[in-house]
Design a protein around this nucleic acid. Sequence first.
DNA 1: GTCTATATTCTGATAGAC
DNA 2: GTCTATCAGAATATAGAC
Lengths: 201, 201
Amino acid sequence: MPEDSEQQTRDAIMKAAFNAVAMNGYSQVSITDITEEFGKSRSLLYYHYDSKDDILVSLLEYVLIELMAELENESTETAREELELLLEKLLPSSNDASEREMYAVILELRVQAVTNESFREQFTAVDQQLFERIDDIVQRGIENGEFQPVDSNLVCEHIFASLNGAHMNKLTTSRDGITERTKASLYDYLNHRLYRGDENT
Amino acid sequence: MPEDSEQQTRDAIMKAAFNAVAMNGYSQVSITDITEEFGKSRSLLYYHYDSKDDILVSLLEYVLIELMAELENESTETAREELELLLEKLLPSSNDASEREMYAVILELRVQAVTNESFREQFTAVDQQLFERIDDIVQRGIENGEFQPVDSNLVCEHIFASLNGAHMNKLTTSRDGITERTKASLYDYLNHRLYRGDENT
DNA sequence: GTCTATATTCTGATAGAC
DNA sequence: GTCTATCAGAATATAGAC
């Protein structure tokens, strides 16, 4: 099923917009910046999209779809494996620059949700999906006895906040070893609050 | 010690810039917006500040100083009291609009740190201070036997990430009861990981 | 210190040729 | 579909009067 060329061009524009935002941040990005990343003419953007706003709203959809695709389920033996696989994707320890770019762009877009209702709706929906995804895993773990019988909502909410906070810390400060430390602290939490085995200290 | 009038004007401009960012977000704010909040002429801004950039960088300092002032120590009997007093300030449950504005503006500014080195330096320094503040309390609690003998760094890192994530969730999504739920999940964590008393479930 | 007026550059967007 | 040329308006910033 080959993509038609209209869709290819639109994708290329999305990639250009992504790079432009990654480079200078949402607050600085202009149509000219996107054009330069795109490599074609400025007016061509307007042939494929209605306005700058249209491009940026489309970028949000594009990025969120890409994110959710990366988080697709893989079948695992245990709930714990599934949870840790998901967390590893959501909080990659690698210093992979493209992973960082991805989460940086999402953060830039996310903050627009503070003052932009349509952005907020999209993030609300994605968070809801992600929350349910984690909740399913935790409940599965509780039911089959892998996990302690915790209040799943409470634990998921906490995992969720930790993840968002971890990205924030990683992307907006330069404290040493912040990624690894935040991650270790999340696993420490899971060890004590969720997993079985009396390794409590 | 009455402030001189130069400082008063600069403060008024800072408040105007704060309101302008709170209203439309960092990415949309213009000198004209700030002028309208300020109520005087546009060029007066340039008499007191060098440039738009200068105003925004100064706003960051202004807001961070205000934040740190709000978190000033109060003497408490127990470490737990001190910790919870601090967390209450950092994560107010009230739906106070001005508290929300404050954290919204900080978030807007914080995300600029992704692509702006001087912003990142400032947030790194503030986070470092705040981290040490929490770390002191936790260590005090451990030493006097109030808290469990945890790895203080690990626990503080986790509290820290949860706080940032809580603000993010609150400000960029509309999930129901998100503030209370995130907060409850943090206290659940403290109950099980830090406080003594065998209320483990 | 504060204003009005203006210079200048940049922005988003369109028209029209190919 | 893609380009060049161009518009109208908004942006930051400055000059100069009071």
